[in-house]
Design a protein around this nucleic acid. Structure first.
Lengths: 259, 259
DNA sequence: CGCACGTTTGAAACTGCTCAAATGCAGTGG
DNA sequence: CCACTGCATTTGAGCAGTTTCAAACGTGCG
């Protein structure tokens, strides 16, 4: 389903297209719920810049670079990686179409991570100074911007819980469901999609060794919950995966003293 | 539990006091670097509401409650907890004096977590609608708000890495150093402080069993890196703890890039 | 003084990691 | 078009670190 319509050169990506493309989508959320008027929408549209597609491995930005613009993924996918004290890469996020990328860079004015294309990917730019300016002029936009960032914080907290406490199977299940959801919102199949990232990246993101990731996939296949071959994946039993989400045994024992 | 309009009993907390009290401090960052003028500062000050001190176990807000105001910790400490699918508590954050609390609630207009005092704690309120309004009027404030949120996202990503990948000793070391830093910025000792949270919460936050937490403390004590007795803690060798931060053996092998 | 709770300790079971090697896939050159 | 080579993925076995269960300990509080 590589829906690259106009293949001519780089057709001007318009806000409207992006809205269509993404619902998970921060950018969509940026406009829709606010009820931005035609004028405002156009104003927002004007500040969007297109850029030429990235090929696999190309970087959107590198760690430490000055931050000037947010990006919205139009098609393809990206990963954010940082380098820890030992010089090892750490995957901290995957970015799917429609998602707003670079929010973590605003604070320091510099990119705290390197963002790299996992496949051929096109993005559009949202120069921050302009966005900021616009947010001042359009009250609803400011609020939306804050909301989106807040949501990102919220999501990070959720992720934190997942990765911090859950077992390997649960982590992978949750990630798969997350991807599924994000693809579905974008209008793609929620059960069949392509894992554009390597097992290595997948494992790295989840805090698992690639071998473990592989083994969990195998276990899930044996259970008949999904089918993977290479990068293609088909989820056969979403309910089962969701069941996996919760911890196996709910200890009746109440945690947390206070309550 | 209704807000008792402050009276003689609770002295009006002024922005100036808060600035003094907190440097780690989101709120301080909210004003200082922007170079808010006297007028603006006063405007900000006007929207701050005091509230009466919380006792240990009191809640600032509960999961699901409508969100209306951010809070700044003035003294004491809080924890944010959510409940997972199994009804178990999950500590997702600790909040020390000077820190801005509630940023994750903006997006959904409802609190995604319960925030509870770990000890006697006073906070002041920062009604969000007013803050928002003010941010529109004061360009620098808008930017600062975005920055702070961005920083929160960034910090969460860092935490994620820590908790996801590191071993128990590293997690605890990193947390202790983080607390140390946050206390130090507030003007308190960076080496001696009180762990207002229980071992249970500590472990829960780090994704460790309380027993493990306890054992790691013991190991650190045997190494002479710190001294704990009950809730009081003294860090004796910050450098050693920092060394712990990195992974034990730096495998020359690098991930990601090419192996 | 003793109960209750949080903390610490010990031992066993389990999970996921590391190391090592086989397999599969893709891009290259013959 | 096929064989070759490099890389990613898979598989297996052993080991290390954490969790879990169970019980002792200590402290604060009634």
């Amino acid at each position: 389903m590589t829906a690259v319509s106009g293949s001519a050169k780089y057709p001007k990506i318009r806000l409207f297209d992006i809205r269509k493309a993404c619902s998970t989508c921060s950018l969509r959320e940026l406009c829709l719920p606010v009820g931005l008027g035609r004028e405002d929408t156009e104003a927002l549209e004007r500040i969007i810049e297109q850029s030429r597609p990235l090929r696999k491995g190309d970087r959107l930005c590198s760690l430490g670079q000055p931050f000037t613009t947010l990006h919205v993924v139009y098609s393809g996918s990206l990963k954010s990686i940082t380098v820890d004290h030992n010089g090892k890469d750490q995957v901290i996020a995957f970015h799917l179409p429609g998602e707003l990328v670079g929010l973590d860079a605003i604070g320091a004015d510099r990119h705290p991570s390197t963002i790299e294309a996992l496949e051929t990917t096109s993005v559009c730019k949202l120069p921050f100074v302009h966005l900021e300016e616009l947010a001042r002029q359009i009250p609803g936009l400011q609020r939306q911007l804050l909301r989106i960032m807040s949501k990102e914080i919220f999501d990070d907290h959720e992720l934190l819980q997942v990765v911090a406490r859950r077992k390997a199977e649960q982590r992978l299940a949750i990630l798969l469901l997350s991807l599924s959801q994000r693809f579905a919102r974008r209008g793609l199949s929620r059960t069949r999609f392509r894992l554009s990232m390597s097992r290595h990246d997948l494992g790295n993101f989840l805090g698992l060794a690639p071998e473990t990731t592989s083994r969990v996939f195998k276990r899930f296949m044996e259970l008949g919950w999904l089918k993977v071959s290479g990068k293609e994946i088909e989820l056969l039993d979403l309910a089962a995966l969701q069941g996996m989400t919760a911890k196996p045994e709910t200890t009746p024992l109440e945690a947390g003293g206070g309550r």
